[in-house]
Design a protein around this nucleic acid. Structure first.
Lengths: 235, 235
DNA sequence: AATTTTATTATGAATATACATAATAATCAT
DNA sequence: ATGATTATTATGTATATTCATAATAAAATT
């Protein structure tokens, strides 16, 4: 028996092989159902999977076309820093530098979509891999969205780990860039003269409420971001 | 009438709100079908979508659990450099620097999984935004996988654009990092003293055959990589 | 008691069927 | 010819039904 996954794979092959060229119209569900000797529903399930993964575009009556993509997606994993390091067999250490309640600078307020001048929890900390500084975590946490944070000392458990463990979030925005470190950052990371840093800025939200904004600063020579593979199945 | 998408969203809310905690067992399809007044099939469709997006894990008889994720995904778009620039309202220019057939260095061969010492097409080019250098494209193209490339001059159309338009690929691997530019790169990009670069290395594959490997080098102050939002639908 | 067999249960998946909806094509009235 | 109306068609989705499969629990056998 042919499952919808089989049909999905067959259709995928046809697209990959160029048999169905980008932009071309593919046969209707009814025709394919006839060809594969199954019902239209089964073909539909397979086609929907292809549409979900962005390979085809479907419109009622107009039919289904192979997308003429000018863009593709890549996916990378965000995980706890400790795991990042331990996974590579490195030894991990965490150090809290400062913890206070302050009104964040304008830039952070803008990123988090804060209108007023409420105080947030500001936590500055350092993550070490094999004894060497690996990441500065400069974080602001909304006490309105996450009041529990007020009672967390963050002296042994990093905000990174606590948040990922305890607080759900719905979406995140990232900015990655290369930069010259600020003097203080250069100090914390123990950087050589002229060594650049890799900066990740992440803002996370729970529905419409900002949860946290963090600036992660890494020495350039010890950090690389790698994407996972694509197109295995859906996605 | 409640569609499977409605049910998907309702269940998603329950996970987001923590009503269904990470690691907890969620009600069976049959129970949920009863609750929502629809058939099990509809619930199944919704649950499958959630499973596809990695929020729940399902096993026969064992039931369905909310994943206890320590990692989350982020997605970014790979698009044609020209579009990247024009989308921001910038003016785009392309310049071919060199085109030749050579045996690539060991590092590139390793990335592409090449065993022998076959010659690849090597294309070096520059992309400008508003007159200023924006990206160095240092690319190797497999003439075995993409023989058509041999007849492409790449003097007005960049390999980036030609490949994305003409050649399908199934998956890609990326590495991002901050680095100090090599002297030649600093030269091409017209960089100031000590200015770092943002480097993207991408290898793409068509099934098991390597298509191309490219090193993209950007001035740090003109480049930032931004992720798209998550959790809209699947993924 | 330990092991094997059987029954139960939850998810996975296919089928036939019915109706909804959006886009296009064909028809008709002006 | 032009514009409005209707028919057609492809996809979207829901339902009832059926069977498959994997994991667990219960029962039976040794």
């Amino acid at each position: 028996m042919r499952s919808y996954k089989d049909i999905h794979n067959i259709l995928l092959e046809r697209i990959k092989d160029g048999e169905w060229a980008p932009g071309s119209l593919v046969p209707s569900e009814a025709d394919l159902a006839l060809e594969f000797g199954c019902t239209r529903v089964t073909v539909n399930r397979a086609m929907q999977a292809l549409a979900d993964s962005g390979l085809i575009e479907r419109r009622r009556k107009a039919g289904t076309r192979v997308v003429q993509r000018m863009t593709r997606n890549a996916v990378f994993e965000i995980q706890i820093v400790r795991h990042e390091i331990e996974q590579r067999g490195g030894s991990y250490k965490y150090l809290l530098i400062g913890r206070s309640e302050e009104v964040p600078p304008q830039k952070v307020r803008a990123e988090m979509g804060l209108s007023g001048e409420e105080t947030l929890l500001h936590v500055l900390s350092l993550h070490f891999a094999d004894g060497a500084p690996y990441q500065i975590e400069d974080r602001w946490i909304s006490l309105e969205t996450v009041p529990q944070a007020r009672h967390e000392p963050f002296d042994t458990l990093s905000p990174n780990e606590w948040l990922l463990r305890e607080i759900p979030y719905t979406n995140a925005e990232h900015v990655f860039r290369a930069a010259r470190p600020e003097p203080k950052e250069s100090d914390y990371l123990n950087l050589g003269e002229g060594e650049p840093v890799f900066v990740i800025e992440r803002t996370t939200w729970l529905s419409d409420a900002a949860v946290t904004h963090v600036r992660l600063v890494h020495p350039a020579d010890s950090f690389r971001l790698v994407t996972r593979d694509q197109h295995g199945t859906a996605l």
